[in-house]
Design a protein around this nucleic acid. Structure first.
Lengths: 344, 344
DNA sequence: CTGTTAGCGCATTCAG
DNA sequence: CTGAATGCGCTAACAG
């Protein structure tokens, strides 16, 4: 059987409470008794039982993270940051991936609640409003949503979508492109909708060519999307540039351009929302809007801390700026770009 | 305050143990009392407290995962698989990244032990033998190492390194390449050492050109490695092909070839151990040895289950085959490749 | 078929 | 400065 705090107290010939206080530094203990306790801990190989501690204190010092797709490096980077921040405050993180499945997401969140996590940080899936959101409202766990937002009553940290896409469209327009297509991803999640709106408004405001077919939505995991692109590219009038709305959609875009034998940027320009690790190694290097995973992760933890401390605080929204990293995938001929570097 | 099992029992007018047994299906309960309990649970919004349960049962149903680099998609994929497998058996996973830092790794493992995880799956860092390994031996937690192996006394699941590299060298040799360089990564971890040995033995056995300078080791996170490659490529005799020993080293290889203005595969061939998600989109697509993350993750959990059930079982080693995915980065001129597809 | 009881390992009041 | 006693929420004998 494992050695307990009680065992230590016997070896040290003190009471259990003294050992506890030595361990936690929570009241003054004589130097020599303290030493006896330390020796006893060393000698017995005592490892504190945080489950017992948590039970007693009704605070587990754990955080649950559930992301919609753990294989997406955007979320992995955020997980990494959250983990770092959590460890700084003595927390461990449970991590799980809903894989865009709201039922699975609910199961994970339930499990986290049963484990009495102090809070949950998650990127809800499409359909969360039918599942986890209801559960979370009832269960009263502190929650921070990241990236995507569902409902009105939750804290949220994410990137500024609407303005960022406008910025990117404007960048392309300044190149002289007037026919711009948009690969939007999942319909029905906040990020997608905001980005679509930004795209549409930019097209409108900049008087670029409008074409319903150039807005493509769908599941990035299916081949369907790239097939749609291929179909669009075989019409009489075709886009001169594509924007991929997230780092997964770049696949679909490239799959399509590869299949059509098109060269970037000679035959078609490509830009994306969401950077990816390999972007510097593609030829041509792809122009992307970068979201700071670092900021998102840190702010999410910060917000969660506040929410835990003050559960009745009104819901907060933190919008993180994006940065346009200009590479080669939109061609070389640059117009007057001075405006672009200013935010929107 | 939270509603407890006791609260439920009062509402249902039964004893706490009955509620417990209804919840766990651990002894027979009359249909109508069972119904009363279910109603009470529903009515009170009861959420079981797994910490209390774990404390009582001295089994937490949690697994700790610590990887050496969570941003490496190889490890992310494994985490994903372990998480899936764990959830199937009602476990949640703590996840953390040591970032190749043995001290940090030890801190994480200590925390996991204090949280009484049922077992730990981890990819040790260089230096673990000075830190976590000692701790783990004392603490007696069930442990399975993945990818890398440190010490003799631990269960391990990883890819077959030695034979795989030989297979890859042979593949290149069959192309007619006789000057093959090797970008080996971190010295002092088992995977690197095994791969180096495979490389050296293959060179020897196939009578290829030997050159000490063509074996480059170092930290993939530093620029140093690519600089070394550049230096080697400016010597009078240079490699015609490079093998990157892991998916991070591909960066360094590409950085160097880009800097030198070399084209793959016209000027230089490139192949790698370890696939990466974008490999199908690079031009040219890069020939890689693929390790099955799926198999590694599943086997790791399986091994951990066995170890938990039988702590005194002798240490197991599971070696997973790799698969050579031939793409374009070694050129088109193929020789007789029939032998290559057979293992080694 | 159900209830009573006794801890799991710890923190924390209250005494001294 | 230290100890004794209590209970966090749950499961699992043991009784009936």
């Amino acid at each position: 059987m494992r050695v307990t705090l009680n065992d230590v107290s016997k070896v040290a010939r003190v009471s259990a409470s003294t050992v506890s206080h030595v361990l936690n530094g929570t009241r003054h203990v004589n130097e020599d008794t303290k030493q006896r306790v330390m020796d006893a801990i060393e000698q017995t190989g005592y490892i504190p039982n945080l489950m017992a501690k948590s039970l007693k204190q009704s605070a587990s010092n754990t955080i649950g993270i559930v992301v919609s797709d753990i294989r997406n490096e955007f979320f992995v980077n955020i997980i990494h940051v959250i983990d770092e921040e959590a460890r700084k405050m003595g927390c461990q993180v449970f991590v799980s991936s809903s894989d865009e499945n709201p039922k699975k997401e609910l199961e994970i969140i339930k499990a986290f609640c049963e484990r009495r996590v102090d809070g949950i940080i998650y990127s809800p899936t499409k359909g969360s409003d039918q599942y986890s959101v209801n559960y979370l409202k009832k269960s009263q766990v502190p929650v921070v949503m990241i990236d995507r937002l569902v409902g009105e009553d939750f804290d949220w940290v994410g990137v500024e979508n609407y303005g960022s896409i406008k910025k990117l469209v404007k960048y392309l327009a300044d190149f002289g492109y007037t026919k711009i297509g948009f690969l939007a991803g999942f319909r029905g999640i906040s990020t997608t909708e905001e980005r679509i709106q930004g795209y549409l408004d930019a097209i409108e405001e900049l008087h670029l060519e409008k074409n319903k077919d150039w807005l493509i939505t769908g599941d990035y995991r299916k081949d369907m999307v790239s097939e749609q692109v291929i179909r669009v590219m075989q019409a009489p009038t075709v886009p001169e540039a594509w924007i991929a709305a997230n780092n997964r959609m770049i696949y679909n875009a490239m799959q399509a351009t590869n299949a059509l034998g098109l060269k970037i940027p000679e035959d078609i320009a490509l830009a994306a929302f969401g950077d990816f690790e390999w972007s510097d190694y593609f030829e041509p290097r792809i122009t992307t809007l970068v979201q700071s995973c670092n900021t998102i992760g840190i702010q999410a933890v910060e917000l969660l801390k506040q929410r835990i401390k003050n559960p009745t605080m009104p819901a907060q929204r933190i919008e993180v700026d994006s940065e346009l990293i200009i590479r080669k995938s939109c061609g070389e001929k640059r117009g007057d770009l001075s405006k672009i570097h200013k935010n929107q």
